Computed example of a mutant assay.
Amino acid sequence: MSLFPTERSVRTTPEGLLWEPGERWVRGRKRDVTVVDSRHPVLVWEPGVPVPCYAFPREEVRTDLLRPAKNPRTGAHTGSQTFYDLEVDGELVENAAWTFPADDLAGHIAFEWFRHWDSGLDHWYEEEEEIFVHPRDPHKRVDALPSSRHVVVEIAGTVVADSRRPVLLFETSLPTRYYLPREDIRLDLFTPTDHRTGCPYKGTAEYWSRRGEGDIPRNILWSYPEPLLAVAPVKGLLAFYNEAVDITVDGEREERPVTPFTASLTT
Rank of each mutant, 00 (worst) to 15 (best):
H40I: 03
R8F: 03
W25F: 11
T12P: 00
N71H: 10
E94L: 00
E171K: 06
T74S: 05
T248N: 14
G79K: 04
R31F: 06
T13C: 08
L238D: 00
T193R: 13
E130M: 15
R218C: 06
K140F: 05
I109C: 09
Q81V: 01
I216G: 04
F56C: 05
D250F: 14
E46F: 05
Y179E: 04
L229I: 13
A205D: 07
D37P: 06
P50Y: 05
H150F: 01
F261Q: 03
Y54Q: 01
A96R: 01
P175R: 05
T158N: 04
S147M: 03
K202F: 07
N71G: 03
P41W: 01
D118V: 00
P68W: 07
R149T: 06
W222C: 11
T158V: 09
P72F: 07
W117A: 05
L105M: 04
A97G: 03
I216E: 11
E20S: 09
V49R: 12
L17D: 01
A244V: 14
T197Q: 04
W25V: 02
M1S: 14
R67E: 06
T197R: 08
V26D: 02
D118P: 01
E59H: 10
E23R: 05
E127Y: 11
V33A: 10
T204S: 15
P5D: 03
L145C: 08
L221H: 04
W98I: 01
M1F: 06
R165Y: 03
D37C: 07
D137P: 06
R11G: 03
T13G: 10
D104S: 12
S148H: 13
W124K: 00
A76S: 07
P260H: 03
E7A: 11
C53R: 04
R39M: 12
P14M: 06
E20V: 09
V26A: 00
P14W: 10
W113N: 04
R210C: 10
R73K: 07
K235R: 15
T12V: 07
T172Y: 13
W98F: 07
R39G: 14
G22K: 00
A110S: 13
D122P: 02
A230D: 14
F111A: 07
Y84F: 15
H108S: 02
T193C: 11
S209T: 15
E206H: 14
T63P: 08
P138E: 02
S264Y: 15
V234I: 15
T267V: 13
T6N: 04
R218H: 13
R186W: 10
E171R: 05
T248C: 14
P200W: 02
T63N: 03
T204V: 15
A230S: 15
W45Y: 09
D162E: 13
L145F: 09
V42A: 01
D89N: 09
D104V: 00
G16L: 09
T6K: 07
M1C: 08
T197N: 04
L169S: 06
T12C: 03
P217L: 08
A263D: 13
E46T: 02
T248D: 15
G75R: 10
P41G: 05
V159H: 02
I131C: 08
A156R: 09
P47Q: 09
D103I: 00
R253W: 12
P175T: 04
L43A: 05
F240I: 15
R115E: 00
E126L: 11
E91C: 02
T99S: 12
V142R: 09
G212N: 11
R218V: 09
V36Y: 01
L229F: 14
